[in-house]
């Protein structure tokens, strides 16, 4: 499978270089390009730092900016960034309010962020928040839910809260509370093709779908017959509703996210289906977001995220944000 790249081993660096050049008004590389930070930091505000493997763009670099992250670290494709990158982000962005490390719940990410936090702890106030929203992995006893598209919802809400002056400890608690309220399920019609391999991570037949996929090109929870968008949306929404349990109250944010190779028209079609299904289950869709935000390289797939929020949390969602991938609200206040 062809890609718009030159060489597999330089793809991530070349792509990031283009990204920073395109958004130089918002963000910049920190020295030695170990991470990407906001152009201007707000003294005393707790710094929000996230990161993960490349291949999920625009996550996380696309969410660096006012109202969201202060820094993001990118590893190799589907590979956690290294502790020295994370340490550089901590050292660059801690302006006295400490740092919250937002870590998607994968062993590799956890261990690398942990080592960075250990190395930083003498000089910085560092807290870690593990995010996991993937309901397909909710039965993994020891490891728990993976962090997938819902991660960006957490980053948006915490970013707005930090901008309003919330303390590091309070941000961490809010993040922990949000983990109980955000539910995602993904499906793929075609696997991702990793640059080094130039073939899909899994191959599906013409009538198959992979359901419960994560964002690393890995196979999902099961392979099923693909009989159209409606049945796929139904399977995902049912699973999300089941996972919601007692959290299934009144109003929610619905995020339909493309996994990289899915065009906008198909995302909106899935959004329409999911919305109807959730509404039929008594959920009012109070906020919506449709687009390609958390990808698995060029995977042809979609994820559906339901975030059951309270009024204060909706207000955080509505608060101004000015990043490469998410932008709304008055910019004067940024």
């Amino acid at each position: 499978m062809k890609k718009f790249m030159n060489r597999a081993d330089t793809m991530v660096a070349e792509s990031l270089e283009g990204f920073v050049a395109a958004h130089e008004d918002i963000l910049m590389f920190c020295p030695q390009r170990k991470c990407i930070t906001r152009r201007s930091l707000k003294p005393g505000k707790p710094a929000l730092i996230s990161g993960g493997g490349a291949g999920h763009e625009p996550l996380h670099v696309g969410f660096v900016g006012h109202g969201m992250l202060d820094a993001a670290c990118t590893g190799h494709i589907f590979t956690s960034p290294t502790p020295d990158q994370i340490l550089a982000a901590i050292e660059t962005t801690d302006t006295g309010g400490g740092c919250l490390l937002i870590v998607k719940n994968y062993d590799g990410d956890i261990m690398n962020f942990e080592m960075a936090a250990e190395a930083a702890k003498d000089r910085h106030d560092v807290e870690m928040l593990f995010v996991g929203d993937d309901v397909a992995s909710r039965h993994s006893k020891k490891t728990g839910k993976r962090g997938v598209a819902g991660t960006m919802v957490t980053e948006k809400l915490l970013g707005a809260a930090a901008e309003r002056g919330m303390s590091l400890q309070a941000l961490r608690s809010l993040g922990t509370e949000l983990a109980e309220r955000i539910f995602t399920m993904g499906v793929a019609l075609r696997g991702a093709s990793v640059p080094e391999l130039r073939r899909p991570t899994f191959t599906l037949g013409p009538d198959e779908m992979e359901i419960g996929v994560g964002i690393h090109g890995e196979a999902g929870r099961s392979r099923q017959v693909y009989s159209g968008a409606e049945a796929a949306a139904r399977a995902m929404c049912d699973e999300i509703l089941a996972a919601c349990g007692s959290h299934l109250t009144g109003r929610a944010l619905l995020l339909v996210n493309g996994l990289g190779g899915t065009p906008p028209a198909e995302l909106y079609l899935m959004y329409g289906l999911a919305r109807r299904m959730f509404e039929a289950a008594g959920v009012e869709i109070a906020r919506s977001l449709v687009g390609t935000f958390v990808t698995s390289l060029d995977m042809q797939g979609v994820s559906i995220t339901l975030a059951v929020l309270n009024e204060g949390q909706f207000a955080l969602w509505d608060a101004p944000v000015h990043t490469a991938a998410l932008r709304w609200g008055n910019e004067e206040r940024c």
Binding site: T79, S80, T82, P83, G108
Partner: peptide, 15 residues
């Protein structure tokens, strides 16, 4: 190893 790899194996073998 740690600074080159990331992944799970970076911290595991570095430790």
């Amino acid at each position: 190893f740690l600074n080159a790899v990331g992944a799970s194996t970076g911290p595991l073998y570095a430790t």
